[in-house]
């Protein structure tokens, strides 16, 4: 009789695991900002899942289980990268550019220089494939540091404390990065989508 693989034993086949690949790659690409790195880390994730399929208890969904493995893989990549180039030293130039971009939005007294645009019913954009291409481009346009903090918060669901620990920054610095990321994404979406859609 053919030996059952661990994944079959747990009721999750390798073919079923592979169905989650597009979702996992999208998740990893947001963090790593590179298609081939994302595919590599997803491949490692699926291999771990296949090897440890017998540990999958079924208490969570397969996707939640895979996402948990992927999070650890992504954090491993960050830690390796941080040893080579600490985050504080990464992207100093684009950091200053992003800060200048933020300052340029406001008068010296803190009022908006230009009234933020009216996006109408923005939820309609969800139905437009082209919007998602613009959205992805805008997430890639953030500085490395801001994007990393933003995706850890919004995609990986880490708390501010966890982000501070992973990136070795203070809470105040973390809030600054998250604010910059949101302002940058808002400005990009307004320029590249909503001002054109009106």
């Amino acid at each position: 009789m053919a030996e059952r693989s661990p994944t079959q034993g747990a009721g999750v086949t390798a073919a079923e695991l592979d169905r989650y690949r597009p979702y996992l790659v999208r998740y990893a690409r947001l963090q790593l900002r590179d298609q081939s790195s994302a595919e590599d880390v997803v491949q490692e994730t699926l291999l771990v899942a296949i090897e440890n399929g017998d540990r999958f208890s079924g208490q969570s969904s397969v996707r939640t289980w895979l996402t948990g493995i992927l999070k650890h893989k992504i954090i491993d990549v960050f830690r390796r990268g941080a040893r080579e180039l600490p985050l504080a030293a990464a992207g100093r130039g684009e950091d200053a550019t992003e800060e200048q971009g933020l300052e340029a939005l406001f008068h010296a007294d803190g009022r908006w220089r230009a009234m933020p645009g009216d996006w109408g019913d923005p939820d309609r954009a969800f139905e437009n494939q082209e919007f998602w291409r613009v959205f992805e481009a805008c997430t890639q346009a953030m500085s490395v540091k801001s994007a990393r903090a933003f995706v850890m918060r919004e995609v990986m669901g880490l708390t501010t404390d966890e982000i501070c620990k992973e990136l070795d920054i203070s809470a105040t610095n973390c809030w600054v990065l998250l604010h910059r990321a949101r302002v940058s994404l808002r400005a990009c979406l307004e320029t590249k989508w909503f001002s054109k859609a009106r």
């Binding site: 996006w119 969800f126 998602w132 919004e154 808002r186 979406l189």
Partner: peptide, 15 residues
């Protein structure tokens, strides 16, 4: 708009 972006990010990741 910040609330919309949070929902957009959720939908993007969820596919």
């Amino acid at each position: 708009q910040f609330e919309f972006m949070r929902e957009a990010m959720r939908r993007y990741v969820e596919g």
